[in-house]
């Protein structure tokens, strides 16, 4: 399979803190990856680097053959762990904004997803609850026909009903030509979504394996594996 992301010897420090240390990773098209790890393991930093929000690092990264830049931002859809939309905008204006700046944005798909997620055009972003903001952001991100989706903690602070809707939307959005990297520490929510797992701890990759292979080899669930791997990390 083709690699959409190639990472070689990636290193990122915040002052004296080593956020990412000698990361080597390939991500293939058509797969959903789980980036799992406890808090402060480097998940968000890795996603921010791939999204182009952090350009200050050492090592080599290629996204579809290009270094992270303005060009790669047109094929990367990023969902941050905190709302980054303008709070004064209405839901309709956020759709216009995405339509104005992302050529791969599908307005019709966004409208359908928003309807499915009970969002209405005239809702103002700053007045939406945390769960509704998560729905809006996910609907906007997944309405793009991107080659790489980066979802940072998409299930943080949201109720079960919303979570089920988000998962259903993610499943419906997955295509053969795109790759999805989902960062989370809620392993149990995403277990059946993922094909490959990347376990990250203190800036190091501890393990990268296929989910089914991992289950067969160890005869354990992903949650049990997670507990085992991070028990000594």
């Amino acid at each position: 399979m083709d690699n959409i992301v190639t990472i070689r010897q990636l290193q990122k420090n915040f002052g004296s803190t080593n956020a990412l240390n000698s990361i080597n990773l390939n991500l293939e098209k058509g797969k959903v990856y789980g980036l799992l790890g406890p808090n402060a393991s480097g998940k968000t930093t890795l996603l921010k680097i791939l999204a182009g929000l952090i350009s200050n690092y050492s090592g080599e990264i290629l996204i579809d053959g290009h270094k992270p830049s303005t060009k790669t931002k047109s094929i990367v859809a990023y969902l941050p762990d905190r709302s980054d939309l303008y709070s004064w905008m209405t839901v309709r204006e956020t759709i216009e904004y995405y339509h104005d700046f992302f050529e791969d944005f599908d307005v019709q798909k966004a409208r359908e997803t928003m309807q499915f997620m009970d969002l209405t055009d005239n809702d103002v972003v700053e007045k939406l609850s945390k769960g509704m903001k998560a729905r809006l952001k996910l609907a906007l991100t997944l309405a793009r026909d991107a080659k790489l989706y980066l979802l940072d903690e998409p299930f943080d602070g949201i109720d079960i009903k919303t979570r089920e809707k988000l998962i259903e939307t993610i499943i419906n959005s997955q295509r053969d030509e795109s790759c999805m990297l989902i960062s989370t520490h809620h392993v149990n929510y995403v277990e059946y979504l993922l094909e490959d797992l990347v376990f990250l701890s203190k800036g190091h990759i501890l393990l990268k394996k296929n989910v089914e292979q991992l289950k067969e080899e160890n005869n354990k669930s992903i949650v049990e594996m997670y507990m085992e791997v991070f028990a000594n990390a």
Binding site: L53, V76, D84, L85, Y86
Partner: peptide, 13 residues
């Protein structure tokens, strides 16, 4: 602040 940082994820130089 975080608000509006979506601008940095758009393909704009």
């Amino acid at each position: 602040r975080h608000e509006g940082r979506v601008a940095f994820t758009t393909p704009i130089s």
